[in-house]
């Protein structure tokens, strides 16, 4: 077709400039900044590996890393399993199923911040209805996000409330992508429903499940808003995930260098995750 060599770039320029400045440049800034000492007033000096040395000898960082890992090791498989259960329940057509489906995905439109606020009210130790119900049921009121032992579980619960339906959508699409005739062939081959699930559905869902696991992990490594709103990293540092630790470094301790070092660390983890994701997206079944 006829167009000048520059036409494509005229169309691309605004978007590419935006992505370059607001998506890719910050990565460079994080990397460069992590080698500098910088305070919130903006004074900047080269500090070499100082920030990393500090970080690696800082027990608070290791605690935070441990908390982030534990959080991810629990929440990602949990959300995947729940999302898969939901997808299986919703998949077959049925009377009124669309109502359930809509209800289950509704929280994805409630912003993360608002859902944290919502649960702060629901779980309020003195006035929240959930504790009222627990009292009524004879279980007794629980401290939830106010106790070190329960805070992490509470945050996981809130994030799952918001996320399970969202991830279900991807698994649902995966289920729809399995040809009906393959399931029918399995029935004719004599498979019981359980055998069909285990030997046909599950192996054919590996790709969508891997996608959900990887994409969910990417998001949960950066978990922030509910920590900020509900626990402030506490009680006793029990929920001080890395992203919150980075935020605190910058805004509580005015230690931008440390904040950027943590950001760089998270970006490196994300880079690995994104490579995994690209692997998954490239050539589906036909690789075999």
């Amino acid at each position: 077709m006829n167009y000048s060599r520059w036409t494509p770039f005229l169309f691309l320029a605004p978007a590419l400039a935006g992505l370059a400045v607001f998506r890719f440049a910050p990565i460079v800034v994080a990397g460069a900044g992590s080698f500098s000492g910088m305070t919130l007033t903006g004074a900047l000096e080269f500090a070499g590996l100082e920030n990393y040395r500090w970080l690696l000898t800082d027990p608070a960082f290791w605690d935070s890393l441990r908390i982030t890992l534990i959080f991810n090791l629990i929440i990602n498989p949990l959300q995947l399993a729940l999302a898969f259960l939901l997808a299986m329940l919703i998949f077959q057509p049925g009377r009124g199923i669309w109502v359930y489906r809509t209800l289950l995905v509704l929280p994805m439109a409630v912003s993360t911040g608002l859902s944290a606020v919502l649960f702060k009210l629901v779980l309020d130790p003195n006035l929240g209805p959930l504790n009222g119900i627990l009292e009524w049921a004879g279980i007794g009121a629980q401290p939830f996000y106010r106790a070190a032992e329960q805070a992490m579980g509470t945050l996981i619960g809130i994030a799952t409330w918001k996320g399970a339906g969202y991830w279900m959508l991807f698994l649902l699409a995966g289920l729809h992508a399995i040809p009906a005739s393959v399931q029918e062939a399995a029935m004719i081959d004599g498979a019981t429903p359980w055998q069909r699930f285990r030997l046909v559905t599950l192996p054919l869902m590996r790709r969508p499940m891997a996608f959900v696991l990887v994409a969910d992990t990417a998001i949960n490594f950066l978990f922030f808003a509910p920590v900020y709103i509900l626990t402030g990293g506490g009680p006793n540092g029990a929920t001080s995930v890395l992203m919150f630790e980075a935020y605190r470094s910058a805004f509580t301790f005015s230690d931008i260098g440390r904040a950027l070092a943590i950001s760089s660390f998270l970006l490196a983890i994300l880079a690995v995750i994104i490579v995994l994701e690209f692997r998954l997206m490239r050539s589906p079944e036909d690789r075999r």
Binding site: L19, G33, A218, M243, A246, L266, I273, F278
Partner: peptide, 20 residues
Amino acid sequence: LVVASFMMPFEAIVLPLYVM
């Protein structure tokens, strides 16, 4: 690069972006 940019959640670059 475009695809990679949306696989990276925005939260990851909030602090360096703030510096900018």
